[in-house]
Write a protein that binds this DNA or RNA. Structure first.
Length: 211
DNA sequence: TGGACGATTGACT
DNA sequence: GTCAATCGTCCAA
């Protein structure tokens, strides 16, 4: 991971060697959704566009959802929409929110158990100009929300169920952040299980969501 | 087969 | 702070 970060220089495109040299997502760290959320916080998201451009961003805000959780899409059991969350860990569960916005989750837990981690905000690192183009906005509003980051990274339903160890959408595990770096709080925008502290974000990050 | 309801966002007062 | 946009999903009938 240290090697990777050293190579990442803002606004430089075309990182041929990055994908091969970074530590890919380890399923062992996704065995349980809450620890998975903590592991994913601080990790990198790499999106390779069809023209070869690689967009990278650091995950700064996540939420954990699990099967016994009334707020989870998996609470009532497997359906056509949520099957990915019952599949192997480390894959993409993507759903349409409010008929308008696509949201990205990393599946967690063993096969047969419906759980995942919603990626709520990222800090753009490289390919920022391209993200601004895709998003139609710049600055702080670029990727500070679950529906915003998917737009900025061109993530949609075509990546449903995608293995996140592989291009064109990958997660590089950063390991667990120091406890003092992480803030736990209630999840946002849900009507059930409102009080559980299952939202995690990086302390002092200006890239977290605002509401 | 119909209708209520979102793991949200942007525009506007 | 409020509110509309917009549509797939799920459950009741």
């Amino acid at each position: 991971m240290q090697v990777i970060l050293a190579q990442l220089k803002p606004e430089r495109e075309g990182f041929g060697g990055i994908v091969a040299s970074m530590e890919l997502l380890d399923a062992a760290n996704l065995a349980e959704p809450v620890s998975a959320a903590r592991h994913l916080l601080g990790s990198l998201l790499l999106r390779t566009l069809t023209d070869g451009t690689v967009l990278t961003a650091r995950i700064v805000e996540v939420e954990a959802y699990f099967q016994e959780d009334p707020a989870s899409h998996t609470f009532a059991g497997p359906t056509r929409r949520n099957v990915a969350m019952f599949g192997p860990p480390g894959h993409a569960y993507i759903y349409l929110s409010y008929g308008l916005h696509w949201c990205l989750n990393v599946t967690a837990g063993p096969v047969g158990y419906g759980a995942g981690v919603l990626i709520r905000a990222v800090e753009p690192l490289t390919g920022v100009a391209r993200m601004e183009e895709l998003r139609g906005r710049a600055g702080r509003e670029l990727a500070n929300g679950p529906g915003k980051l998917t737009r900025a990274l061109a993530v949609g339903p075509e990546l449903y169920g995608h293995d996140l160890r592989l291009a064109p959408l990958q997660v590089a595990d950063a390991g667990q952040l120091a406890e003092a770096q992480v803030i736990a709080s209630p999840r946002i925008g849900i009507s059930r299980a409102k009080d559980e502290l299952l939202r995690f974000h990086m302390k002092d990050s200006v890239h977290v969501s605002r509401r």
